[in-house]
Amino acid sequence: MPHDHHDHLSPSGHPYRPDDDHPLTYWQQMEIAVRELLIEKGVTTAAEINAQIDTMDARTPANGAAVVARAWTDPAFRDALLADASAATRDMGFDVGPMKLIALENTPTEHNVVVCTLCSCYPRNLLGLPPDWYKSRAYRSRTVKEPRKVLAEFGVTLPDTTTVRVHDSTADMRYVVIPARPEGTDGWSADDLAKLVTRDSMIGTGLPKSPDAA
């Protein structure tokens, strides 16, 4: 069996990195050995591990985009999301597991941005695995000290009249930003609005797409 079962496309639509054909590394040996030992010891099964991979693959920024778009179009849901984001996203049908989520709403005067300076905590049970830059030394180090310079590198320039609120995920909570609804989208459906919501806009390093670009 030269190839594995999980050879479908990754959530980004790109193929997985073709590691199956690269020379086996020490750490890959360790992953195989640990997995087999856990299965033999009865801790888990191959099916359970594959199911966990599928669960994570199903968690993508599209889930968060649907949550944001509903918050834009359903005031009662928006209130419930700000009161308890874990419960509200669960009620919408998303399996966020045990994650304790706080939603941070951007307004004309406040812009929220999320970082984890101590490791790389991320709302993975809603948005999927974090982008590589989120785990980088540069993002982790600088965002709490010079957030506006970091945001500018992402193409987001905010006026001085907007307060930037940086959220350092130091402990048990995870954070998702509810970006401000773009102008010129009156009457849009939640499905159409969700297409404007980018991953970065839910971390706070981006803004939703303009309706002209949709």
Partner: peptide, 9 residues
């Protein structure tokens, strides 16, 4: 920007 803030748990 003195008015900017940091929240942490």
């Amino acid at each position: 920007n003195p008015n900017d803030t940091i929240d942490a748990e």
